[in-house]
């Protein structure tokens, strides 16, 4: 198993500078490091391989085209890329006319995670760049009470509004908001130290 290596913030800044200088090699490096995570996230949201690959492609087009909009002062590169991926995937999800039919198909999966169950990390993927962050995020999520974890997953991976979450879970709107606020605070605290991209 390849031991993940740490990419310092300085290395990341260099990568961003190279991307802004239109260095195609830098984009290839970013793809190699991030594509599995982008595809994993898109697949998790869309539950459709073809659409997830489309999102993967769109994300790198957008990263290349809008890298000048990334401000290092506002956060590291990786969450920025992942937020693009999430937004793209959720857009695709909302556009999809056959959303409800799909929902039936992936109901089993969702229902599992609706219960707040976090998918177990696959040990075979441990050599993938970023694996330690993946584990830390899992640990932070796992540390949340089930009810809080459940609303976080519904908000993040399905893009549901507070009201939609309240309807889905059968909880009062105020309860949902409170759980999300508390969960957000705990996650922020738990992941505060995660600043470097690991590979």
């Amino acid at each position: 198993m390849t031991q993940p290596k740490r990419l310092s913030q300085e290395d990341e800044r260099t990568l961003v500078r190279r991307l802004k200088a239109r260095d195609e090699g830098a984009l290839a490096e970013l793809y190699d490091a991030l594509a599995p995570w982008v595809l994993g996230l898109a697949s998790r949201i869309l539950q459709d391989d073809a659409e997830a690959e489309e999102v993967l492609s769109d994300v790198f087009v957008q990263v290349w085209g809008r890298i000048h909009q990334h401000e290092p002062a506002r956060g590291p590169l990786v969450p920025w890329v992942l937020s693009i991926a999430r937004n793209r995937a959720l857009d695709s999800l909302r556009r999809r006319r056959r959303w409800w039919r799909k929902a039936e198909r992936w109901g089993a999966t969702v229902r599992l995670e609706d219960d707040g169950t976090v998918p177990t990390p696959d040990p075979a993927e441990a050599a993938v760049p970023g694996w330690p962050v993946h584990q830390e995020v899992h640990a932070a999520l796992a540390a949340l009470p089930v009810d809080q974890r459940r609303v976080v997953l519904l908000a993040y991976f399905e893009g549901l509004t507070h009201s939609e979450i309240a309807r889905r879970t059968g909880q009062p709107l105020g309860t949902v908001k409170t759980r999300l606020r508390i969960a957000h605070g705990k996650l922020t605290e738990a992941l505060r130290h995660v600043k470097d991209w690991l590979r």
Partner: peptide, 24 residues
């Protein structure tokens, strides 16, 4: 730091032929 939640799902290796297509 919910931005990192994007790393919750397990990574999935893209098909090798996607790399050239996406970068291109």
């Amino acid at each position: 730091m919910t931005d990192w939640l994007g790393m919750t799902p397990n990574p999935r290796d893209p098909r090798p032929e996607l790399r050239a297509r996406v970068l291109g």
